[in-house]
């Protein structure tokens, strides 16, 4: 599992620029399903044909990042966020553009107070001599992701983009170990979740499944003096109760609970007060799709040091595999 996660997190895939990660996932899953295609918005959809219920599984392959907006005469690059980016997390980090150019993210030092820090007071230094030199590597409109190597410490994986490449890894693992089932399964690697659940919307409309289960990360409440939340890294995959985009459908919640119990794996419940996720878009598609999610507990979401427990990933895969084989 770690090798797969490392492979996926290392690939570039800022929202709207998912080309590379899509190709990597595509080559990873080719040969394991009946059909693979890319829809007009860029979602990668892998189908295991069947005569039973249509079940959609979604993990988003995009990641947050930045977009160059202006290059000054000295070659410093101003930027905007793509998805939610914290100015504090960004400070002092490296970003990498699609072509490999790396830059340092820093701030105008005359800034008096750190609490006034805004992305608009920050810039990227790619070591250019001047604007002309900078433009050889970066043009405005180019996106860059944060740099964060993928390492394993004990049971914990630390990396950038675990949101949501860890979910992609779970889907890929399940797809490769395809369970015996009559259900028709759609493994959807969605685009632009970080911009507002865009890819989930169109893919769900195309598939119109009978049920959808997403795999994405969620916040935890197990770090010093953090906000209260009863989800712990290593406590097992979390069954989504709600986030700001959805109250998980009771049937999906029940299926996840019962499957987890039968497997005897640890699980927990996710009540997320901020943030939305792909099932929020899927469940309101067309005449409605009962939807829910398996959430991977993840510390420091949207930072280059996102942290998940590898056992939670393994158990999430077991849980998903069991659910999709259920007779419905």
């Amino acid at each position: 599992m770690f090798d797969l996660v490392k492979k996926l997190t290392g690939i570039f895939g800022v929202s709207g620029n998912e080309e590379e990660i899509r190709e990597v996932i595509k080559s990873e899953i080719t040969g394991y399903v009946d059909d693979i295609y890319v829809d007009p918005i860029g979602n990668l959809i892998a189908v295991k044909k069947g005569t039973g219920k249509k079940i959609m599984l979604a993990a988003h392959m995009d990641e947050i990042g930045i977009m160059a907006t202006f290059i000054d005469d000295d070659g410093f690059i101003r930027f905007s966020n793509v998805g939610w980016v914290s100015q504090y997390y960004a400070l002092g980090q490296r970003v990498k553009f699609k072509n490999g150019a790396v830059g340092a993210v820093f701030y105008e030092e005359k800034l008096d107070e750190m609490k006034n820090l805004k992305l608009s007071k920050m810039y990227i230094d790619i070591g250019a001599k001047n604007r002309e030199d900078a433009e050889k590597k970066v043009r405005i409109g180019d996106t860059a992701c944060f740099v964060g190597d993928t390492v394993q410490e004990g049971d914990m994986i630390i990396s950038k983009a675990l949101d949501d490449r860890s979910g992609c890894a779970v889907l890929i693992k399940v797809l490769k170990e395809m369970p015996e089932t009559e259900n028709e399964l759609y493994f959807v690697f969605t685009v632009q979740e970080e911009l507002g659940l865009r890819g989930a919307k169109t893919s769900a409309y195309r598939i119109m499944p009978d049920m959808a289960i997403a795999v994405d990360v969620t916040d935890t409440g197990d770090t010093p003096e953090c906000e209260l939340m009863e989800v712990k890294c290593g406590g097992g995959p979390a069954i989504k109760i709600k986030d700001r985009s959805i109250m998980a459908h009771p049937d999906v919640k029940r299926l996840l609970e019962e499957s987890a119990r039968e497997l005897g794996i640890p699980y927990q419940y996710e009540v997320l007060e901020k943030g939305g996720s792909d099932p929020g878009a899927i469940h309101l598609t067309g005449g409605g799709v009962p939807s829910g999610a398996i959430s991977i507990p993840c510390r420091y979401i949207h930072s280059p040091v996102e942290t998940v427990n590898i056992n939670d990933l393994e158990n999430a895969a077991k849980l998903l595999k069991k659910c999709i084989a259920a007779k419905m």
Binding site: G221, M229, K242, V271
Partner: peptide, 17 residues
């Protein structure tokens, strides 16, 4: 509301719907 957390003394924290 939904139950958000139960502390060690049995007090329930909650979130609104």
């Amino acid at each position: 509301f939904l139950v958000k957390s139960i502390d060690k003394n049995g007090f329930i924290k909650f979130t609104n719907v």
